[in-house]
Design a protein around this nucleic acid. Structure first.
Lengths: 134, 134
DNA sequence: GTAGAAGTTAAAGCTGACTTTAAGTCAAGC
DNA sequence: GCTTGACTTAAAGTCAGCTTTAACTTCTAC
């Protein structure tokens, strides 16, 4: 498989595949006349990388998943180790998003005429909140 | 107020305030000997900007909130217009995060020994899912 | 009057995940 | 044998939202 075929088969651009190789996510394939020649496993590797990306892993984290454990560590154990903290991060981000949504629903009730009036109101209101809670 | 005092009062760095000014979020203040001199309203403006940022607005969106409407549009109407779509975006991102969390909880049950085995499994499983749903 | 803190500008740097560009090599079809 | 398209590399560009740097001016305190 050429890099173009691999790219087409995985929905990535060739440049992304080269980038992953350079980043250490993908091992360097064989070459024929200087050009990369991939075995079909490469598609699965890319699929795995895509899955990890879809579930919120950064490229350094994916590299950790692939190469950051002792050889003897099973794939399942690697996932459990990394997914646990990622789930916590996701829950934190969900919590934050809900808080943002709540603030937006409040501000939608705004009766201010001018933005400056609104700014004064917000600042005063938030200040009160801080002083009353402390 | 000097830029340093305004920065200290709003928890920003002077560079951020200059950046907001250049980005069109903050109107250019008066100058004394070349230096910016702020009125106390500037603190409220910055508070508003911070609030908008905290609720998920980008700087261009905040600029829109402040200057992207006819003068006659009330602050309340501006917020309602912009917050509505922002809330939808937030709900989409929450939905996505929950989907990611679900995928992570599944992969945590992985019994694979090697990552390559896992990659094959994932690719096959996902392919099945796609073909069976189409 | 001088040191040092704080202000000024434009321009470059930072992060992450790539893409684009430039300049060159190689392969396939006519 | 020539064109066209796909490949190669290193380096630079992209986006957001600032920060940092460099070179310079100005304010404040002693």
């Amino acid at each position: 498989m050429t890099i173009g075929e691999l790219a087409a088969g995985s929905g990535l651009r060739p440049s992304a595949i080269r980038f992953y190789e350079k980043a250490g996510l993908l091992s360097a394939p064989a070459r024929r006349n200087g050009r990369r020649v991939y075995a079909s496993e490469a598609t699965h590797r890319l699929f795995l990388i895509g899955f990890a990306k879809d579930t919120g892993f950064s490229l350094p984290e994916i590299k950790l998943l692939l190469h950051g454990f002792p050889e003897s560590t099973t794939a399942g154990d690697r996932w459990r180790k990394l997914a646990t903290s990622k789930i916590q991060q996701l829950e934190a981000s969900i919590k934050k998003a809900r808080a943002m949504e709540g603030m937006l629903r409040s501000i939608m009730k705004c009766r201010c005429t001018t933005i400056d009036q609104c700014a004064r109101g917000l600042a005063t209101c938030m200040q009160k909140r801080r002083t009353s809670s402390s």
